[in-house]
Design a protein around this nucleic acid. Structure first.
Length: 486
DNA sequence: TTTTGAGTTGTTCGA
DNA sequence: GTCGAACAACTCAAA
């Protein structure tokens, strides 16, 4: 191989310039850079990108292209098999090295291994970097040398581990001067009409997320431990999609929040609470790494024996937010309108699907995968399993969220419900979470006709809860029998 | 090695 | 209205 004349920077889920170790390493070679994003098409991917993700990706790529203009670095767009494309680019440019940030979905780990080995065999050195997580999923083990299965010990284990400094945003880059073809972003099959309505709920790109993060620290961090549970306030960071796409690095968050807390002791509780959430993100990747079947197989495998209701009609009613329970319906509307749902509401709608409706958590996981802009294999799978009771959770199976009680507790004025279900706007607070219990004259005055402009409840809460507990009890008692036989 | 205590996010019932 | 117990039972880490 002749002297190489360029290096390839393969952008994936690290669509940022600040604290991007792969980018920094590419620049440090001193060689001209070719930046590429590949819309990967491969057979056998069990989780092809969901609709909301595709929509977010377009916006993320647009702003990355924009940010790279400052460095006169074009972002090459290619669609197809990544290995073929990388080989092709290397051949055309005589590039000798490829840089990328690691990703952790089981299917992608396998794919990346093949790509790395093949490139290396061809004399093209491929180097991968840690940029999406604070800790590699395989780097954390308990005192027995085993992976963690409970969150709190995991958190204790990583809480005080040192984290390397951030890589600063580059001051300059040397773009590759040769001509390389690029696809037109608008021609990629990523457009989903239903997703366009989400536009007005988000700001895009790295600059936007930096601003959002700054605002969150200034305005919301102090009260985060309590307020994060309130869907009626904008009290959470909403960083999830940006973190998923790597538009902000977890390492920056970690360092920023520590620095801020030094001068602001009143933020101590907020800091711990927020870092704990960040650690859940890490823990979920840890779980997925050691249980690659997590997205489809129960982590406690005996739960796969549950006979779920396989009812498309009921599933659709849940998806469309027509269950007759306002908090559930408001959450599903928020998801559909914005591509995002408040964390507490996610737990409540999930519990409702799995427990009250007895539909498999995998069905819910699929719907979230398609509709969430922060759709992430590890987070989605681990959290659905957690709610379903088959995941990494010490809590017992009988935790069933009651959507009415939860609403009273966390949306006390009903303003979250009113925001997403304007047809209930005139209903007084006393009945806003259970319109089916309101006296006829109150309903009439509020302009509500049950079964017409707001549905009757799809199930009875008390009865469906009891039925769920019965169902789960069969699994749990089967478990103890099996254990005794072992 | 054995024991002990704790484990993200809940609900209901009865005192 | 408020409070504690019960809902069952297992895994894991630390003492």
């Amino acid at each position: 191989m002749t002297q190489s004349s360029a290096v390839i920077l393969w952008f994936r889920n690290d669509l940022r310039l600040h604290d991007n170790p792969a980018l920094t390493a590419a620049i440090e070679t001193g060689q001209p850079i070719i930046a590429v994003y590949i819309l990967e098409e491969f057979a056998g991917n069990p989780w092809p990108m969901g609709g909301a993700s595709k929509w977010w990706l377009v916006e993320a790529l647009k702003s990355l292209q924009q940010d790279l203009l400052f460095y006169h670095l074009p972002l090459i767009l290619r669609k197809g098999d990544p290995l073929t494309i990388l080989k092709d680019l290397a051949q055309q440019s005589n590039a000798g090295r490829v840089f990328w940030t690691r990703r952790y979905d089981p299917f992608l780990i396998e794919q990346d291994k093949i790509i790395k080995n093949t490139l290396n065999e061809l004399g093209i050195r491929a180097d991968s970097y840690k940029g999406a997580l604070l800790h590699e999923p395989w780097a954390i083990r308990n005192s027995q040398g085993q992976p963690f299965r409970v969150f709190t010990p995991y958190w204790k284990a990583i809480r005080h581990l040192p984290i390397a400094e951030e890589c600063p945003k580059p001051t300059s880059m040397t773009p590759y001067q040769g001509s390389l073809s690029s696809d037109d972003l608008n021609a990629w099959p990523l457009q989903a009409h239903w997703a366009e309505k989400m536009q007005k709920h988000w700001t895009f790109g790295e600059k936007a997320v930096q601003q959002r993060w700054k605002d969150f620290c200034r305005n919301n961090l102090k009260d985060y431990p309590n307020m994060r549970d309130r869907p009626d306030f904008a009290a959470t960071s909403k960083l999830s999609p940006y973190l998923h796409w790597g538009q902000i690095s977890p390492r920056q968050i970690w360092h920023d929040i520590h620095k801020i807390a030094v001068d602001h002791p009143e933020l101590e509780n907020g800091k711990e609470s927020f870092l704990r959430e960040l650690a859940w993100r890490e823990f979920n990747h840890h779980l997925l790494f050691y249980s690659p079947g997590l997205p489809s197989k129960a982590w406690h495998q005996e739960f796969d024996a549950i006979k779920w209701q396989n009812d498309e009609t009921i599933l659709k009613i849940w998806q469309q937010g027509k269950t007759g329970y306002p908090l559930i319906d408001a959450g599903m509307k928020e998801l559909w309108q914005t591509g995002w749902m408040h964390n507490r509401v996610r737990m409540i709608v999930a519990s409702f699907l799995v427990k009250n409706l007895q539909i498999s958590w995998v069905q819910g996981e699929r719907w979230f995968w398609d509709t969430l802009v922060d759709g992430d294999l590890a987070q989605n799978a681990a959290n659905w399993q957690w709610v379903a009771g088959c995941g990494a959770d010490a809590a017992p199976y009988f935790r069933v969220f009651n959507p009415v009680l939860q609403a009273r507790k966390f949306d006390p004025d009903g303003s979250y419900v009113r925001r997403w279900l304007p047809q209930l706007g005139k209903l007084p607070k006393e009945y806003i979470f259970e319109p089916y219990g309101a006296p006829p004259d109150i309903l009439k005055k509020a302009g509500i006709e049950l079964g017409k402009n707001y549905p009757y409840p799809i199930v009875d809460l008390k009865q469906s809860r009891a039925s769920a507990l019965d169902l789960y009890r069969t699994i749990v008692s089967a478990r103890s029998t099996t254990d005794k036989n072992m």
